[in-house]
């Protein structure tokens, strides 16, 4: 079984957009390693020919009626925004310094 290194935790944190401290890297590497070792038991069915289940209720293609219904107003949508400007969400710049 692969063990989870500090470098791997740093990579996962980057993928998940989580800034982590040096102490967290140590803590999470140890804990994730322990958890992954425990959950890896499911691997014993990996080679068996069993159809996967993604959902308890086998529903496909649920459509709603093509009807206009009221949604949020602009004011409601912006009411909880961390920052708004001119009736829009204001967001930080998208490109980094080096871009």
């Amino acid at each position: 079984m692969p063990s989870i290194s500090r470098a791997e935790v740093a990579h996962l944190a980057r993928l998940a957009r989580l800034a982590v401290t040096e102490e967290e890297l140590d803590l999470f590497a140890g804990q994730l390693d322990q958890i992954v070792a425990a959950v890896a038991q499911v691997g014993q069915v990996a080679d068996q020919d069993i159809p996967p289940t993604s959902h308890a209720v086998p529903l496909t293609n649920v459509f709603r009626r093509d009807q206009v219904r009221p949604g949020l107003t602009q004011r409601q949508a912006l009411a909880s925004a961390p920052a708004a400007e001119d009736g829009r969400f204001r967001v930080p710049r998208i490109l980094g310094e080096e871009a």
């Binding site: 499911v42 691997g43 014993q44 069993i50 996967p52 289940t53």
Partner: peptide, 16 residues
């Protein structure tokens, strides 16, 4: 993916 998530989905079938 296959070793972990895929296997877990198979286990889900076995439990059902």
């Amino acid at each position: 993916y296959d070793a972990y998530y895929g296997s877990a989905q198979k286990v889900r079938t076995l439990i059902m």
